[in-house]
């Protein structure tokens, strides 16, 4: 699980161009959106594609993402449960 969380942090930093962040800056239960990492709706769409491409999970409604992308911890749990690759 820790490996997955680590992997997700790396991917998010790379995919969303968070140049000023390193993996150690992101806590497992930091809010990814809003006050935490400050991600927005465009980032949510980026993450939806990442879920599909890397883990075979398809979210069809961007609203679903809101719950799933709450924090690294929630996201990792969701992926572990639903991944098809």
């Amino acid at each position: 699980m820790n490996t997955l969380r680590q992997e997700l942090k790396e991917k998010i930093i790379e995919q969303l161009n968070l140049e000023d962040y390193s993996v150690s800056d992101i806590e497992d239960n930091d809010a990814l959106f809003g006050d935490g990492l400050g991600l927005d709706s465009i980032d949510a769409l980026e993450l939806i594609v990442m879920l599909d491409k890397d883990y075979g999970i398809q979210l069809t409604d961007p609203k679903e993402g809101k719950e799933v992308f709450k924090s690294i911890e929630v996201l990792a749990d969701y992926i572990a449960k639903h991944r098809t690759k």
Binding site: I42, L45, E46, V49, D52, K53
Partner: peptide
């Protein structure tokens, strides 16, 4: 496939 919106926007 697997396209993301940022560069389009």
């Amino acid at each position: 496939k697997f396209l993301t919106p940022t560069s389009f926007i």
